[in-house]
Nucleic acid binder design. Structure first.
Lengths: 231, 231
DNA sequence: CGACGGATTGAGGGGATTCAAATGTAGTGG
DNA sequence: CCACTACATTTGAATCCCCTCAATCCGTCG
């Protein structure tokens, strides 16, 4: 008998919806949650315009969300790491508002919105956590707006690395050394920079000894100096 | 005896939290909502870091929200119009995450978060609308991100005007002619452009006959052409 | 009427883009 | 398993869009 994955023993529980819930309440939440089939690199999880019936929680791996502009070009608006919940921006009209694609092999949980709403009526902690998670996303999005609007390419990239580092730390992974599952083009797209600029600035940061980059592997050598570069 | 303002007869009800609620349910919501003292131009509604005890709904007037960067400069992240609800991005940790300042004389409602949560347990429609409103804000924020990252100054400004126009329309006001309550500097700050660029592009749009601008008054002469410029 | 903040207009410079080419890496099929 | 190919990354040179600096103009309010 295989040991199925449950919220009760999920390592991402503290970042995800179970946060604030007692063991008994978490068990209740678990009963409405399904596992989703694993995604391979480049697999699409959702299409823009698709009916929003589930929220998805990332268990492992990573994804990017993007919209298409009038010329069919990607506009990346988010990278999703384990513990993140996907789909909140579609609640307004019951449709997904973007495409979401796996950047590597990725495992997900599937949360039926209908059941989630019913359950949240009886669990104040779940209600609160739903609002907290959405609020956090909203805050992150607005903060990023400010960052992109008022900062240079170097500042944007430094900020990107610092933010990633702290997100990995939250997830119990190394904040000093991590793997970029997205391409340089993805990073540039997300930050409003060209691929070439991203590459140039990474090599420059490396020459300055602030980070060490080897292909997709990043090592942050001097976090404080990097942090200073975000300002 | 003055006729106090109630959700039941508020013209913004369809944009605000009462949407989806029956008259009886709206009355319940109304009981927990207080009017806030009117704000004058430049008055601060909330300070960044301040404890978040209330959400605020705009009844009339307008406001801007901004954070401060390391040099003390404003980073404008939002403009609020009647019907908008302010404060969602602070739910994650119970603190307001930005400064919010009136751009003109402004009337507000004050919604105690504690009571709102309790009420939302018994009103599924209110729960849904809360999520809808937050989701809408999240979506707007992410869309704006994409817009700013991948578009020229002219495209950004055209998009700003089209978006404002449609927001005024939603509120039962003219979508063809409206007043910009914020300064050119505010617009530039919000869009990541310098004041001079905003000014230059507005005059250029005027010369092209797409809009007519007279100080703070904007008339959109050819909405479709303006819309085409956003792409 | 004068003064001040806001808006416009012009000239010049710089940071990031674009175009172009070389190099490195990963994925595929023989 | 390796050769081949497609994609990703790096690097260089030239260009351009927008910013900065500076001066003037306009509207509003004391």
């Amino acid at each position: 008998m295989t040991s199925h994955i449950h919220c009760q023993n999920c390592s991402m529980a503290t970042l995800c919806l179970p946060y604030l819930l007692s063991p008994e309440q978490t068990e209740k939440l678990d009963t409405i949650i399904q596992r989703h089939r694993p995604l391979q690199k480049r697999d699409l999880l959702v299409n823009s315009g698709q009916k929003l019936s589930f929220l998805y929680a990332v268990r492992s791996g990573s994804l990017k969300s993007y919209t298409l502009d009038s010329q069919g070009g990607e506009q990346i608006i988010d990278f999703h790491l384990p513990g993140d919940v996907i789909g909140f921006d579609g609640l307004i009209d019951g449709q997904h508002r973007s495409y979401t694609q796996a950047l590597e092999t990725t495992m997900l949980c599937e949360i039926p919105i209908q059941s989630l709403d019913q359950l949240s009526a009886e669990l104040p902690g779940l209600r609160k956590q739903l609002l907290r998670v959405m609020s956090g996303e909203l805050h992150a999005s607005k903060t990023l707006l400010g960052t992109l609007n008022h900062h240079s390419a170097q500042q944007r990239l430094a900020n990107f690395l610092v933010t990633l580092s702290s997100r990995f730390k939250q997830r119990g992974l190394s904040s000093r050394e991590f793997r970029l599952s997205m391409t340089r083009a993805d990073i540039g797209n997300y930050l409003g920079l060209s691929v070439e600029t991203v590459s140039r600035i990474l090599t420059q940061l490396q020459q300055d000894g602030v980070v060490a980059v080897k292909s997709k592997l990043v090592e942050i050598r001097e976090l404080e100096r990097l942090r200073a570069l975000t300002l």
